[in-house]
Simulated scan of single mutants.
Amino acid sequence: MKLFQWVVLPILLLLVVLELVALVRGRERRRFVAMRLLVWTVAAVAVGLPDTTSSVARMLGIGRGTDLVVYLFLLAFIATSFFFYSRYTLLQRQITELVRREAIREAEQGRPSASNPGGGQSTSGLS
Results as ranks from 00 to 15, higher is better:
55 S>I: 12
102 E>H: 13
2 K>G: 04
35 M>N: 00
38 L>G: 09
28 E>V: 11
14 L>K: 06
57 A>Y: 05
75 L>S: 11
69 V>S: 07
90 L>Q: 15
43 A>G: 05
3 L>H: 11
22 A>K: 14
58 R>I: 05
52 T>F: 12
53 T>D: 10
31 R>V: 15
124 S>K: 11
69 V>D: 00
120 G>I: 06
80 T>R: 12
126 L>I: 09
60 L>Q: 04
41 T>M: 04
123 T>S: 13
49 L>N: 01
70 V>K: 09
103 A>G: 06
54 S>I: 09
36 R>H: 15
22 A>G: 10
71 Y>N: 03
48 G>D: 04
71 Y>Q: 08
64 R>Q: 13
15 L>R: 08
62 I>P: 00
89 T>G: 01
7 V>N: 02
57 A>R: 03
125 G>K: 01
35 M>R: 07
74 L>G: 13
85 Y>R: 13
30 R>K: 14
1 M>N: 11
87 R>E: 14
78 I>Y: 01
65 G>P: 02
7 V>A: 01
122 S>L: 12
53 T>P: 01
107 A>P: 00
88 Y>H: 08
12 L>Q: 01
107 A>C: 01
49 L>H: 08
58 R>Y: 04
60 L>W: 07
24 V>L: 10
11 I>H: 02
15 L>T: 05
124 S>C: 10
32 F>S: 11
42 V>Y: 06
21 V>E: 02
32 F>N: 12
34 A>W: 06
103 A>S: 13
76 A>H: 09
56 V>K: 06
113 S>K: 13
1 M>H: 13
23 L>S: 06
114 A>L: 15
70 V>N: 06
103 A>R: 15
99 V>M: 10
40 W>K: 02
105 R>S: 15
123 T>M: 12
66 T>H: 09
77 F>E: 08
10 P>C: 00
53 T>K: 06
93 R>D: 14
86 S>L: 07
22 A>Q: 10
120 G>N: 04
78 I>C: 03
15 L>H: 08
82 F>S: 10
117 P>R: 08
57 A>H: 06
37 L>P: 03
26 G>E: 03
120 G>S: 06
21 V>N: 04
73 F>A: 15
20 L>T: 05
31 R>P: 00
14 L>S: 14
78 I>H: 00
57 A>D: 04
123 T>D: 10
106 E>S: 13
32 F>P: 00
81 S>I: 11
43 A>D: 11
113 S>E: 11
45 V>W: 08
65 G>V: 04
10 P>W: 03
11 I>Q: 01
122 S>E: 12
94 Q>V: 12
108 E>D: 10
27 R>G: 14
65 G>N: 05
63 G>Q: 14
60 L>E: 05
62 I>T: 01
49 L>D: 00
81 S>T: 15
3 L>C: 01
96 T>H: 14
51 D>T: 12
111 R>T: 09
96 T>C: 05
65 G>M: 06
27 R>C: 07
65 G>Y: 06
93 R>H: 12
41 T>K: 03
13 L>P: 03
116 N>S: 12
120 G>T: 07
119 G>K: 01
17 V>R: 08
125 G>A: 01
105 R>Y: 12
84 F>T: 14
11 I>Y: 05
77 F>V: 13
33 V>R: 01
33 V>L: 02
37 L>F: 04
114 A>H: 08
84 F>M: 10
